[in-house]
Design a protein around this nucleic acid. Sequence first.
DNA 1: CGAGTTTTTGACCAGCATCAAGATTGGTGG
DNA 2: CCACCAATCTTGATGCTGGTCAAAAACTCG
Lengths: 259, 259
Amino acid sequence: MQVDLSKTLYSMDLLARRLVAASFLTDAERDLLLKRQQRSQAYLAGSEIAGTREQRPRPRLIVCGWACRERIMPNGRRQLLSILLPGDLIGGCIDQRALDLVEIVAISNVKVINVASALRMVEENPATYPGIHRGLAQLRFAEEKRLLDHMVRLGSQPALQRIAGFLLELFQRCRVIGFVSAGSFVMPLTQEMLGNALGLSVVHVNRVMRQLKAEHLIDLQAGIVKILDAAGLARVADFSLPDGGRPSERSGRAAVSLA
Amino acid sequence: MQVDLSKTLYSMDLLARRLVAASFLTDAERDLLLKRQQRSQAYLAGSEIAGTREQRPRPRLIVCGWACRERIMPNGRRQLLSILLPGDLIGGCIDQRALDLVEIVAISNVKVINVASALRMVEENPATYPGIHRGLAQLRFAEEKRLLDHMVRLGSQPALQRIAGFLLELFQRCRVIGFVSAGSFVMPLTQEMLGNALGLSVVHVNRVMRQLKAEHLIDLQAGIVKILDAAGLARVADFSLPDGGRPSERSGRAAVSLA
DNA sequence: CGAGTTTTTGACCAGCATCAAGATTGGTGG
DNA sequence: CCACCAATCTTGATGCTGGTCAAAAACTCG
């Protein structure tokens, strides 16, 4: 289902779209983003976009395809740390050296463009590009938020909620970049990858996905996820107790401990 | 064991110490750090240093005591996201708004000083304060690394290794800021907090700590942790297979996929 | 159509949570 | 200095969530 974009002009249109969503851009800013057509760099699904001992990691923008940051442990186990979608920056946040910490791997076929010079221009003249500057800050903020959300999932949610929340996050991210139609989006993650992202075994991921399907919260076929009941999913994802108690059950617990 | 520092001059000495460790400072830089004595702000153990809906979170430096970033879930469960030690910045990294994402809570009694103006000066004139500028980047880098390490712990390590790795991290961080003597450091975390940080129940934290003690890797008493065998701990923490298999089994995987 | 990958199921078991209760520790007031 | 209380630590018993093993079905692709 990977669309061949080889004939498309690669520009920073995607970045522009995301930034515009949050801020109005000046003409100078539009120029910076849209006039700089660039040759894109392509990576095959499964290949490494940036490795642990990268020579000189340049900030890049994903134009097409999915990638992830992951860490591979000495025993071969993999932990996906975050998913990167079109419009996301690689190494644009934090510090360049942060790339040392993980590997960036293409999940589907991926195309990226180098945004080092554009970023540098913005960093050096924030006043000239106020909208982009602010927009970038928001991108970083969103990335940080996702990281923390995911930590909470891993640390304190059972499998059902981890998966529900994660799917919901992907859904919303896809929607922002216009990759959702009729409540569906293409998700090129195998259940094994989902497991690696969520700290669960493939088998268990499968069972939970199946359960979500049985409860008519999502629908699945051929790598396409359809969110049938976003509100229901959110309800499942946010809450932690096995019984369907409402959030106010703290009083219940309290009552027990008082009894 | 909380030393009363009320008569101490609060300066950015700690920050200076950390920065110096990695970079040489110019006179201007020393001045910036050391000449700006500041009134410190104090927080009692358990109190909130910065909340989710903070009016205007200013970057601050922890001068004394331990704090943490945590998220509290609707069901009352808590997930500690990171531990903040003296010399760590609050809200100095990423974006100020990142503070919205979590609460910052004092674990022991804590003192902080405001470093907003100093940070602004450095950001605006990076050339004047090259050492500090680089040093701050390293601080951010280290924080990012810790976050990712912790995610790996939560996502793909069993209890024994989570705890071993976490203790080791605390140990090394304490050593850097000079809070280790004779292999021991004061750790004001209750086992319940450890559990909240590591996604484990109090009971299980206790059992594992006990096991580490039994294996003469650590010693524990009255909130003081003594690392008896750092190398042994590291061995436990880094590896995930029950048997002591060697790391090089990636070749095995490769061979399979090539065959 | 056959080989490899991914998904699906079932059977079994282990790691860790939960529940419950007792032992320590530290702090407080008499 | 001791009695007392709350918080923390410790330990045992029991059960559930989710891991592991194994193998069969459904896809995918050349």
